[in-house]
Write a protein that binds this DNA or RNA. Structure first.
Length: 641
RNA sequence: GCUGACGUAGCUCAACUGGCAGAGCACCGGUUUUGUAAACCGGCGGUUGAGGGUUCGAUUCCCUCCGUCAGCUCCA
């Protein structure tokens, strides 16, 4: 018997003749499955339904319920996009067209960029291609054959030339369109039902800024109509929460062409900034961090020592030294080297370690204009950046401590985090023994947190392994914020030392650590996470006191002053506008609480409290109780009102 | 930096193929004294991002620069 054995997901084993296709297996299991089948997973690899099976393997039919099937659909959607573009623009040269998170794209070399009207026409044509239900046919061809088939497609020829001799060259055909492609694909174009083209923009061929720009069309595709609707809703929601829009509406910060990429913070924005900074400062103080301040301006000697003067100089703001006439001074783009200098200025005992330096100074980086974006990519910012100097034996304990601290910060802001463990890259310094130890220490610390993490082999810094923290916000987007990096290079470059128990000099290790990343970016994320409706402790304005009429102006003023005396950020709105008007104004400013003072309240020493978002439901309580309640919420840094 | 789009009052947006720059909100003044999401009346507000060009005439067409946005590159 020369059959092959396929182990199905339920553990059962099916025997089939060699060369059987997944489609045939699906049919033999049931007609329903055969209809739903999109592709198959064979020993973990995803293949077309018509790919003959040659060996014993684990085997599963992919249907639209399998998350991996979405990638297959989107990859096929990219081909359908290219099919449509070729129909409408026969001279378009084709680049790459992969699936990406939430969708797909395809790159084309065309005579003029695509317009929004083009996109509409292409989208309609895609629907036609789907309607025709062309099967996706796979062929494996020789190099000569591939070169012949794509002789009019220079970009594809370049790709073919890059393929190794041992690689199979496969091409896929759907109706009129033929593409060089590894696959797999859904059985036919008709499987694409719920899709939408999103945008067109230029992208460098092969991601290389020295090469020509192609026109890239982005699209999204889903199995279910509801999923597509949910996705477009998510895009709208993200737009509604855009921190640039909310920053202006809530009067937090502004930008002006006199200083591109640097924010003007209003009083409210400055308050928010300060509250976050105060929290981080207090937390660090509790954990034994030492806050220091170092110069903003340095001559090039520092950057030569740190290694930044070479390649990184173009990102630094250089300052003209009027005596030398040279631009050999620079504003600091990061704190690390200055911390190392301060460490090196003293003689340190092993008894002092770990030494944890923290600085909130202003940093400047000369980002290229095209990279600037709201608060997420700025030229001037502040970091909650720290450097910890310690003995190798202290790494495990310290990393665990730092990881817990970072997770505590995210919890405090209601953000969820996942961790990535990045290990030794190809190009690195230090011997294998050092890396073995560093990775083991870092991993042990990571496991001690009990949190799940992803492994990113080869993704570490050249000077040591690291842990990155990805934070998820309220609409499911991911942001890389925190990082813990072990650094074995800086101690050498800066000739750092400590005196050990044995009274001889040793090299410490440095841990680079950030929790929020930059306050600017962190605030952008918080604005979008909370959609501008901050918890009480973060709100720039915590209470708005509203007298109903002039009669209660004095009583309201006393309530307002009482709140202020208790350290609560209160604003008194005793304007001549109607109460309705003033309530609407405060509601739109997303103030957490309104304290309404009318005749009854003034006489009883109470306030009618209206909570943000709770509508007209009010809670009449004594002023003292209101103040106490707010104080407790603020101290607890409560997330809910 | 690259490709493309965009830039009109503090904000959101109008102004037909080149023909008198306009509205709402905000702001200011007056009236109103209000019980939980917009009272009423009046007023101020513009070198249409900047500079140049074409034209009898430019917010509109062309060029340069600045800025913003999307994507790419970059994010040490």
């Amino acid at each position: 018997m020369n059959g092959i054995h396929l182990t199905l997901p339920d553990g059962s084993v099916r025997e089939a003749p060699e060369g059987t296709t997944p489609r045939e297996i699906a049919k033999s299991i049931g007609p329903g499955l055969a209809r739903a089948a999109l592709a198959a997973r064979v020993d973990g690899a995803i293949v077309d339904l018509d790919r003959p099976l040659r060996r014993d393997a684990s085997f599963a039919i992919l249907t639209d319920r399998d998350p991996d099937a979405l990638d297959v659909l989107r990859h096929s959607a990219a081909h359908i996009l290219a099919t449509a573009v070729r129909e409408l623009f026969p001279r378009a040269a084709i680049g790459f067209g992969p699936p990406i998170e939430d969708g797909f794209y395809y790159d084309f070399e065309v005579e003029r960029p695509f317009t929004p009207d083009d996109l509409e026409a292409i989208e309609r044509k895609m629907a036609e291609v789907a309607e025709k239900d062309y099967p996706f046919l796979r062929e494996e061809v020789s190099r000569d054959e591939a070169n012949r088939r794509f002789r009019d497609d220079p970009l594809k020829l370049e790709r073919i030339a890059d393929l190794g001799d041992d690689e199979t060259i496969s091409i896929y055909t759907d109706g009129p369109f033929v593409d060089l492609c590894r696959g797999p694909h859904v059985p036919s174009t008709g499987r694409l039902k719920h899709f939408k083209l999103l945008s067109a923009a230029a992208a460098y061929w092969r991601g290389d800024s020295r090469r020509q720009m192609l026109q890239r069309i982005y699209g999204t595709a889903w199995f279910k109509k509801e999923d597509l609707a949910a996705y477009t809703h998510r895009l709208e929601e993200a737009k509604r929460r855009d921190h640039r829009k909310l920053g202006r509406e809530l009067d937090l910060f502004l930008f002006h062409p006199v200083s591109p990429g640097s924010a003007f913070w209003t009083d409210k924005g400055t308050t928010l900034y300060r509250v976050i900074n105060d929290y981080i400062r207090e937390l660090q103080q509790r954990h034994g961090y030492l806050e220091i301040k170092t110069p903003l301006l340095y001559n090039k000697a520092l950057w030569e020592t740190s290694g930044h003067w070479g390649k990184y100089r173009e990102n630094m703001f250089l300052v003209l030294d009027s005596e030398t006439g040279e631009h050999d001074m620079s504003l600091k783009p990061m704190n690390c080297p200055s911390h190392h200098v301060l460490y090196g200025l003293g003689r340190h005992s092993y008894r002092e370690l770990p030494i944890r330096y923290s600085t909130f100074d202003v940093l400047h980086r000369n980002e290229v204009t095209g990279a600037l974006s709201g608060l997420t990519r700025v030229r001037q910012f502040q970091q909650d950046d720290c450097h910890i100097y310690l003995m190798p034996s202290q790494i495990a304990g310290e990393v665990r401590h730092v990881a817990e601290m970072i997770l505590e910060v995210y919890r405090t802001f209601g953000l969820t985090a996942t961790m990535k463990f990045a290990t030794r890259p190809e190009v690195r310094i230090g011997d294998d023994a050092m890396w073995d130890r560093a990775e083991a220490d870092l991993r042990a610390a990571l496991e001690a947190t009990g949190m799940p993490y992803d492994l990113k082999p080869g993704d570490g810094a050249f000077y040591g392994p690291k842990i990155d923290f990805d934070v998820g916000d309220s609409i499911g987007r991911k942001w890389q914020l925190g990082t813990i990096q072990l650094d074995y290079a800086a101690p050498e470059r800066f000739d750092m030392l400590y005196v050990g128990e044995d009274n001889t000099e040793h090299r410490p290790v440095v841990i680079h650590r950030a929790m929020c990343g930059s306050f600017e970016r962190f605030i952008a994320i918080l604005i979008e996470h909370f959609a501008g409706a901050f918890p009480l402790w973060l709100s720039p304005e915590q209470v708005r006191v509203l007298p109903i009429s002039d009669q209660q102006a004095e009583a309201a003023r006393r309530v307002h002053q009482g709140l202020r005396d208790a350290g609560i950020r209160s604003v008194l709105d005793a304007g001549s506008q109607t109460l309705n008007y003033r309530i609407r104004d405060a509601e739109m400013a997303k103030v957490p609480y309104m304290a309404v003072v009318g005749q009854r309240e003034a006489e009883a020493g109470t306030v009618a409290v209206r909570t943000r978002g709770a509508g007209s439901k009010q809670d009449v309580i004594p002023v003292g109780e209101f103040v106490t309640r707010l104080g407790e919420s603020i101290r607890a840094r409560a997330l809910e009102l």
